[in-house]
């Protein structure tokens, strides 16, 4: 992999060094802990038997470079989303380090914005939270709404977000996150939800973000959208990095492993 793209000097944007992530899940034990037992545990400063540790990412290392679009594949529960959240700095690593250029942004489908507020309010709040200035977000607000296509079927942007369908909400979220120039953008299954027209628009936007010298990570179970957007693929399984290479090579091995396309 280091032999690829020789010539121009490659600038790393994300360095992941022996990353381990451990979740501690409360209330996962037998579920019948009595109050007195809990009290004595607190007094003796023991950890509760109801706390279970889940080792979600085990020693992953890689380097991503500027202008790369990296796909992440693997079966459900293989640690893809967890790793993205660690790269974004939203989950502290148990061991190892993640170095990034600027502040990476993670864009996921399940990410709720504020459901009781209108779409427009969400656009403004999302922009401000990403660090845009007041005037900047007001200027871009209309573009974001147009890109999301929320208003194509009437004035939906002034309705609370809880009235949106899941596809509409995902489109709006993607549009908000994509409005900012990101050095590192991570997309977690976002393209799967939109309709065909929106998918085409967002793929174009991802290409544009890459052209503006960013790095894009894409998690997807749709091998076609990985082929369309990515030039490098990481295959995670059980929290370990099984393969790291050019898209075609890794996808072929993955498809063979999972038993056909």
């Amino acid at each position: 992999m280091a032999e690829r793209q020789q010539g121009t000097e490659r600038v790393p944007t994300v360095i992941v060094d022996d990353l381990h992530i451990v979740y501690r899940v409360h209330g996962a034990g037998s579920g019948k802990g009595s109050a007195t037992a809990a009290l004595s545990r607190i007094v003796q400063r023991k950890t509760s038997p109801n706390v279970r540790e889940v080792h979600a990412v085990r020693g992953v290392s890689f380097v991503a470079y500027r202008g790369e679009a990296v796909g992440l594949i693997g079966s459900n529960g293989s640690g893809k989303s967890t790793m993205l959240r660690a790269i974004a700095g939203l989950l502290p690593p148990e061991r190892g380090r993640v170095y990034t250029d600027g502040q990476p942004s993670l864009l996921g489908v399940n990410a709720a914005l504020m459901n009781d507020l209108t779409g427009e309010r969400n656009v403004i709040l999302g922009g401000l939270a990403m660090g845009m200035s007041n005037s900047e977000i007001r200027e871009k607000c209309q573009d974001i709404v147009d890109f999301s296509g929320i208003n194509e079927k009437g004035d939906f942007i002034s309705l609370p977000m809880r009235t949106y369908s899941s596809g509409m909400a995902a489109r709006l979220r993607f549009s908000i996150a994509a409005a900012k120039q990101h050095d590192v953008l991570m997309i977690d299954e976002a393209l799967a939800t939109g309709d065909r027209a929106f998918q085409r628009r967002s793929e174009a936007r991802i290409r544009q973000l890459r052209a503006e010298a960013g790095t894009v990570f894409l998690v997807s179970h749709n091998n076609k959208s990985i082929r369309d957007t990515c030039d490098r693929v990481l295959w995670l399984e059980k929290g370990e990095l099984w393969m790291d290479g050019p898209t075609e090579e890794v996808l072929e091995a993955y498809e063979e492993h999972t038993g056909g396309k």
Partner: peptide, 14 residues
């Protein structure tokens, strides 16, 4: 695990 085409790149000093 299948044959790892490219060994995970471990920088000497990340």
């Amino acid at each position: 695990p299948p044959v790892v085409v490219t060994a995970p790149l471990r920088e000497p000093d990340p």
